[in-house]
Amino acid sequence: MKVRELIEKMGLRLFSGELCLDKDISGGYVSDLLSDVMGNAAEGQVWITLQNHKNIMAVASLKELAAVILVKGQAPDTDTMAHSIEEQVPILGTDQEAFETAGMLYQLLNQ
Protein backbone atom coordinates (compact mmCIF):
# COMPACT_ATOMS: atom_id res chain seq x y z
CA MET A 1 0.00 0.00 0.00
CA LYS A 2 1.15 3.49 -0.79
CA VAL A 3 1.05 6.43 1.62
CA ARG A 4 -1.54 8.10 -0.60
CA GLU A 5 -3.97 5.19 -0.18
CA LEU A 6 -3.33 5.07 3.54
CA ILE A 7 -4.36 8.71 3.94
CA GLU A 8 -7.57 8.02 2.10
CA LYS A 9 -8.44 4.76 3.88
CA MET A 10 -7.66 6.04 7.37
CA GLY A 11 -8.96 9.56 6.83
CA LEU A 12 -5.65 11.10 7.90
CA ARG A 13 -4.67 14.76 7.73
CA LEU A 14 -1.75 15.62 5.49
CA PHE A 15 0.47 18.25 7.08
CA SER A 16 3.42 18.19 4.71
CA GLY A 17 5.15 16.20 2.02
CA GLU A 18 2.38 15.93 -0.57
CA LEU A 19 4.94 15.34 -3.31
CA CYS A 20 6.15 12.12 -1.74
CA LEU A 21 3.01 10.09 -1.19
CA ASP A 22 3.89 7.30 -3.60
CA LYS A 23 6.18 5.44 -1.24
CA ASP A 24 5.30 1.85 -0.51
CA ILE A 25 4.54 1.02 3.12
CA SER A 26 6.37 -2.01 4.48
CA GLY A 27 4.85 -1.94 7.96
CA GLY A 28 4.41 0.19 11.04
CA TYR A 29 6.26 1.13 14.20
CA VAL A 30 4.84 2.71 17.34
CA SER A 31 7.12 4.52 19.77
CA ASP A 32 7.76 7.89 21.36
CA LEU A 33 11.39 7.10 22.14
CA LEU A 34 13.64 8.30 19.35
CA SER A 35 16.43 5.84 20.10
CA ASP A 36 13.95 3.00 20.02
CA VAL A 37 12.83 4.02 16.54
CA MET A 38 16.45 4.59 15.50
CA GLY A 39 17.47 1.14 16.69
CA ASN A 40 14.44 -0.90 15.69
CA ALA A 41 12.25 0.64 13.00
CA ALA A 42 12.79 -0.54 9.43
CA GLU A 43 12.87 1.18 6.07
CA GLY A 44 9.46 1.89 4.58
CA GLN A 45 7.55 1.68 7.86
CA VAL A 46 5.02 4.23 9.02
CA TRP A 47 5.95 5.66 12.41
CA ILE A 48 3.11 6.38 14.82
CA THR A 49 4.04 8.85 17.58
CA LEU A 50 2.93 11.82 19.63
CA GLN A 51 6.32 13.51 19.38
CA ASN A 52 5.96 16.49 17.05
CA HIS A 53 9.30 18.31 17.24
CA LYS A 54 11.83 18.67 14.46
CA ASN A 55 14.04 15.76 15.53
CA ILE A 56 11.43 13.21 14.46
CA MET A 57 12.19 14.16 10.87
CA ALA A 58 15.93 13.55 11.31
CA VAL A 59 15.11 10.06 12.58
CA ALA A 60 12.45 9.40 9.91
CA SER A 61 14.79 10.50 7.16
CA LEU A 62 17.86 8.61 8.40
CA LYS A 63 15.74 5.45 8.73
CA GLU A 64 14.02 6.07 5.36
CA LEU A 65 10.55 5.69 6.84
CA ALA A 66 7.54 6.01 4.52
CA ALA A 67 5.66 8.53 6.69
CA VAL A 68 5.05 9.74 10.24
CA ILE A 69 1.57 9.78 11.78
CA LEU A 70 1.07 12.20 14.67
CA VAL A 71 -1.67 11.02 17.02
CA LYS A 72 -4.06 12.70 19.45
CA GLY A 73 -4.49 15.79 17.31
CA GLN A 74 -0.81 16.76 17.52
CA ALA A 75 0.41 19.12 14.81
CA PRO A 76 4.00 19.63 13.68
CA ASP A 77 5.63 23.04 14.09
CA THR A 78 6.75 24.94 10.98
CA ASP A 79 10.34 23.80 11.38
CA THR A 80 9.27 20.17 11.48
CA MET A 81 7.16 20.60 8.35
CA ALA A 82 10.00 22.33 6.49
CA HIS A 83 12.27 19.43 7.38
CA SER A 84 9.62 16.97 6.24
CA ILE A 85 9.47 18.58 2.80
CA GLU A 86 13.25 18.75 2.57
CA GLU A 87 13.68 15.11 3.55
CA GLN A 88 10.67 13.95 1.56
CA VAL A 89 8.99 12.14 4.43
CA PRO A 90 5.32 13.12 4.74
CA ILE A 91 3.79 14.03 8.11
CA LEU A 92 0.23 12.85 8.61
CA GLY A 93 -2.10 13.34 11.53
CA THR A 94 -5.13 11.93 13.31
CA ASP A 95 -7.22 12.77 16.38
CA GLN A 96 -7.19 9.12 17.41
CA GLU A 97 -4.79 7.62 19.91
CA ALA A 98 -1.80 5.46 19.03
CA PHE A 99 -3.69 2.26 19.94
CA GLU A 100 -6.55 2.84 17.48
CA THR A 101 -4.20 4.17 14.81
CA ALA A 102 -1.88 1.16 15.04
CA GLY A 103 -4.84 -1.22 15.05
CA MET A 104 -6.27 0.31 11.91
CA LEU A 105 -2.91 0.36 10.13
CA TYR A 106 -2.28 -3.27 11.09
CA GLN A 107 -5.64 -4.30 9.73
CA LEU A 108 -5.17 -2.41 6.47
CA LEU A 109 -1.72 -3.86 5.88
CA ASN A 110 -2.76 -7.41 6.69
CA GLN A 111 -6.05 -7.75 4.85
Binding site: L33, L34, S35, M38, G39, N55
Partner: peptide, 16 residues
Protein backbone atom coordinates in the same frame (compact mmCIF):
# COMPACT_ATOMS: atom_id res chain seq x y z
CA UNK B 1 10.36 14.70 27.27
CA UNK B 2 11.50 15.00 23.66
CA UNK B 3 11.85 11.23 23.54
CA UNK B 4 15.63 11.18 23.97
CA UNK B 5 17.55 9.98 27.00
CA UNK B 6 16.09 6.49 27.25
CA UNK B 7 19.51 5.01 27.93
CA UNK B 8 19.66 3.33 24.54
CA UNK B 9 22.24 5.51 22.80
CA UNK B 10 25.54 3.84 23.66
CA UNK B 11 24.06 0.29 23.47
CA UNK B 12 22.63 1.14 20.03
CA UNK B 13 26.04 2.37 18.92
CA UNK B 14 27.80 -0.76 20.14
CA UNK B 15 25.22 -3.01 18.49
CA UNK B 16 25.53 -1.26 15.15
Amino acid sequence: EMGFGAGMGLPNMKKN
